[in-house]
Amino acid sequence: MHHHLILRVVAKLLLPFILLYALYVQWHGDYGPGGGFQAGVIFAVGFILYALVYGVDALVRVVPRGVLVGAMAVGLLLYAGTGVVSLFLGLDYLDYSRLAHDPVHGQEWGILLVELGVGIAVAAAMTAIFVAFATREPDIDDEDW
């Protein structure tokens, strides 16, 4: 367990900053480059870095597989659900104008919500794909490499 000590320490130091940066990209997408998709990818990269350094089993202890699959669905449903809410408010699907007291604020809220949905779905999907690949036993010997 004492292999790659420097790598483990540096990864542990970097992780909070990666996750914080992902959150920054997520919530700051209205003002700067980025948005839900990029934030989701960066968030997943944080998890994947953890898995690369500490092993996939450690990652699965932090985020069980059921949580990953659930989060994928929750993200997509948050997006689609925002559209359904605007249907109930008497507007077209995915028209956010009545989500707040005036149309401009409604648009801001709608964009924030759907971007959050995209972020959750993308982060969970990317991490799930990585976990699926990484937990599958390779069929080839080490000598073949």
Partner: peptide, 19 residues
């Protein structure tokens, strides 16, 4: 005037082209 979101790319992606 429509969305109040300065990043036009985000506004187009999430609102005008939400589908």
């Amino acid at each position: 005037p429509d969305t109040g979101v300065p990043n036009i790319v985000t506004a187009v992606l999430a609102s005008y082209r939400g589908y």
